[in-house]
Computed example of a mutant assay.
Amino acid sequence: MPTPTKGPRLGGGPAHERLMLANLAAALFTHKSIKTTETKAKRLRPVAERLITFAKKGDLHNRRRALSIIGDKSVIHELFTEIAPLVELREGGYTRITKLGFRKGDNASMVQIELVLEPVNPKPKSVKKTAAAKADTTVADEPVVDEPVTDESVADEPAAADAPVEAEEAATETSASDADEAPAKDAK
């Protein structure tokens, strides 16, 4: 006989287990938190998270899929209208299991399984990506300070009011350089 891969069977056969998990899920969605044994909670978690994923999709087909598992229309209505909007931005991990200790009668490990309904804080971007993006924006926004001051760099910076004066100076410089070159050509 092959070893079961889903974990221990709870109670009788598979039909009993399926019904028990459906009842636990219905109680979880109704009360938002239930106290049960650790084994049952670990088996309930994937069932409950799958039902919440159906509820997040919210269409008729997924409502009928959830209804085929639980069977109680009031629980399905609560799941789709109240719980799904609260976990809409959460990408998984809709349940939380907290250990409570051991049961007095048979020393079974008891836990509390509850829905995680707190709002999601988006994860910060990775440090490398944010540092690279920040460096790119600062390089583009800030002027470069390390350049040495030269006559050309000073000539590039004056205000617009000095532009006509610069144009005149440039014209006189070009005419003076032409005048210097002309006698040199005559001397040859």
Rank of each mutant, 00 (worst) to 15 (best):
V165L: 12
V47K: 14
A160L: 12
L28N: 04
T5W: 01
A41C: 05
T30M: 10
S74A: 13
E88S: 08
V139C: 03
R64V: 03
K123L: 13
T137K: 14
V154I: 15
V144R: 13
R96S: 11
A161S: 13
K57A: 03
S126M: 07
S68H: 06
S177K: 11
K99Y: 08
A184L: 14
E142L: 15
E173F: 03
E181V: 03
E147A: 15
S68T: 15
A182R: 05
A66Q: 00
A132Y: 05
G92R: 15
G93K: 09
G7S: 05
A135T: 12
F29T: 07
T53G: 15
F80I: 00
D146E: 14
K129H: 01
A170G: 07
A27V: 07
L51P: 00
K40I: 08
A155F: 12
K40M: 02
S177I: 06
T81G: 04
A48D: 04
A15V: 10
K104P: 00
V154P: 07
A27T: 13
E181C: 01
E152K: 08
R64C: 09
I34K: 00
E157G: 00
H16S: 14
L10R: 04
L44T: 06
V139A: 14
A132Q: 05
N62L: 07
A108H: 06
V145C: 01
G12A: 08
A131L: 11
S68K: 05
S109K: 14
L21H: 04
T39E: 09
A26Q: 01
G11M: 01
L117D: 05
A132F: 02
A163S: 09
I76E: 02
H61R: 12
K134E: 01
A163E: 10
A179K: 12
E78S: 09
P8A: 10
A187I: 10
P8L: 15
G101Y: 12
I83H: 00
K99I: 04
A167H: 10
D59A: 07
D141N: 06
N121M: 07
G101E: 06
F80E: 04
R90H: 08
A184T: 10
V116D: 11
K40F: 01
H31S: 14
L44Q: 02
K99S: 03
L28Q: 02
A161G: 00
V120T: 08
I70G: 13
K73N: 10
T98W: 03
K128R: 07
A15N: 08
T172A: 10
T39K: 02
D146P: 02
R18C: 02
T150M: 06
L21R: 05
R43L: 09
F102E: 14
I113L: 13
M20C: 00
E173L: 06
K128C: 02
